[in-house]
Amino acid sequence: MTDRRRNNGPSEGTLPIFYPDEPATTLPAPRDRQPDELRKFFLKTSLTPPASGSSYLELPSPPSPTQQSTLKLAVTVTGPRPLPHSAPFAPQARLTTELKYAPFAAQKRRGYIRDGGERELATMITTALVRSIVLERYPKSSIEIMVTVLDCEDGPHGDVGVLSGAITAGSAALADAGVECVDLVCGGVAGLDGNGRVVLDPGPGECTAVVGVGYLAARDEMTVLWTRGGMSVELEEDQMDIGGETEMERVIQAACKAAREVRKVLNEAVAEKLVVELEEKENAMRE
């Protein structure tokens, strides 16, 4: 599909850079942290002042060249604002989400027109966040979330990291916009590595199966759950009579645990703005 409103480059198309020496599959870098240790990440709100609310999430640039984990997300929230006149009456706020990868976000250059994968991720983000918002507070209004992925991991489970990051950053942006919420939503990821060990927040290519959750930590509720890869749902024989958990249950529990860890960072990022505002108010009072 040609996009007549953009510069599309040569009509014959172009080829990505071809490195003949590179092995077809690069082995994942060995995990350099504890199984229950998350990668450190950076989350800050209000980086897009013209928007009602915004946040920026980043996994710091890889410390070693072998570790390819990278993620940079910018999320903005517009609204709550009135629905257009043409829209039918809605007793509650309408939440819409758009997700777009930047053309330079991944190894393969992406076009500007949103593809199915991006739309699917956007729908899942909506599902994850909509449960946390008090929609009845905003009748006849729309709340729009825009997620821009500037940089992300390649690999089979790359979009899982994007999704969980977008949920966390999206919740931060909603809070930044002052949208009334019942709780903050955190994205958490856990997986099974090659040895069947459960690890939190797996790096690229580290796991054979992963589980991601959108989790309301204060209410202990899951708003969204998705899995990739195969996990057993049968109890192992030695676990049968002691009421143990299946493999999948263990990974889901771990994903929730990861989300609870993420929540600490989210709390701080959201509180940061409130503290600044409080201090400003106090200073104004003193003067």
């Binding site: 953009r6 910018a74 825009m146």
Partner: peptide, 14 residues
């Protein structure tokens, strides 16, 4: 078409 500039403003930037 060796140099292909583009801009995206639909990022919620404003």
């Amino acid at each position: 078409c060796l140099i292909v500039p583009n801009i995206e403003l639909g990022t919620g930037c404003s």
